[in-house]
Amino acid sequence: MATLQIENLPDELYSRIQCLASEKNFTFNEAVIHLLKQSLESDKAIVNQTQESKPMSAILQRIRSRPRVKPSDFGLTDSTLLIREDRNR
């Protein structure tokens, strides 16, 4: 397992981590690992949300650029004909 050494840690930050450790019954080391994991998980969620929130124009462009598929190429009946046939009943 890797070791992390932090220099020039502000006293206030050190005190806050100590408080968190005592509240959660963690060692100081466990509290730091907990905080790092939380931070990285929230950053990962933000990146995923950013990737998912593409502008509508980009989404529509991607949809329009998809290749057209003819049902007849797969031996299937065109759905337009099936709908027309159903409406004529």
Results as ranks from 00 to 15, higher is better:
Met56Tyr: 10
Glu7Gly: 06
Ala2His: 03
Asn29Gly: 13
Leu40Tyr: 14
Phe74Ala: 05
Glu41Asn: 14
Ile46Ala: 14
Ile6His: 02
Lys54Pro: 02
Asp43Phe: 15
Asn29Ser: 14
Ile63Gln: 01
Tyr14Ser: 06
Gln61Tyr: 04
Leu82Gly: 01
Phe28Ala: 09
Val69Pro: 00
Glu52His: 10
Ser79Asp: 02
Leu9Phe: 09
Arg87Ser: 05
Arg68Lys: 07
Arg62Cys: 02
Met56Asn: 06
Asn29Phe: 12
Asp86Gln: 03
Phe74Cys: 00
Ile59Cys: 03
Arg66His: 03
Leu60Tyr: 13
Ala45Arg: 13
Ser79Asn: 02
Pro10Ser: 10
Ser22Lys: 12
Ile6Cys: 00
Glu30Tyr: 11
Leu36Ala: 15
Gln49Lys: 12
Pro10Gln: 06
Ile59Lys: 14
Thr80Asp: 08
Ile63His: 03
Phe74Asn: 01
Glu30Trp: 13
Asn25Pro: 07
Met1Gly: 05
Arg87Val: 09
Thr27Pro: 13
Arg16Ser: 12
Cys19Tyr: 08
Gln38Cys: 14
Pro10Ala: 06
Ser39Trp: 15
Phe74Val: 00
Glu41Ser: 13
Lys37Gly: 04
Asp43Val: 11
Leu9Cys: 10
Gly75Ser: 01
Asp11Gln: 06
Leu20Thr: 09
Thr80Asn: 00
Thr80Tyr: 10
Pro67Ala: 05
Glu7Ala: 07
Ala31Thr: 11
Ile59Gln: 10
Asp11Glu: 06
Ile83Asp: 00
Gln18Ala: 07
Gln5Met: 05
Pro55Thr: 07
Lys54Arg: 12
Thr50His: 12
Ser79Trp: 07
Gln51Pro: 03
Ser72Asp: 05
Ser57His: 06
Ala21Asp: 05
Lys24His: 14
Lys54Trp: 00
Glu30Pro: 11
Gln38His: 13
Glu41Pro: 08
Ile33Glu: 14
Cys19Asp: 10
Asn88Val: 02
Glu23Lys: 13
Ser22Val: 12
Asp78Phe: 00
Leu82Phe: 02
Leu81Ser: 03
Ser79Lys: 06
Glu23Ile: 12
His34Pro: 08
Ile46Pro: 00
Gln49Leu: 11
Thr50Met: 12
Phe28Lys: 15
Ser65Asn: 03
Leu35Gly: 11
Leu76Met: 09
Pro55Tyr: 02
Tyr14Leu: 03
Ile6Val: 04
Thr27Tyr: 11
Pro10Asn: 07
Arg84Lys: 14
Ile17Ser: 05
Gln38Ile: 14
Gln61Arg: 04
Leu81Phe: 04
Ser65Lys: 06
Gln38Arg: 15
Arg89Ala: 03
Thr3Asp: 07
Met56Ile: 13
Asp11Trp: 02
Phe26Leu: 12
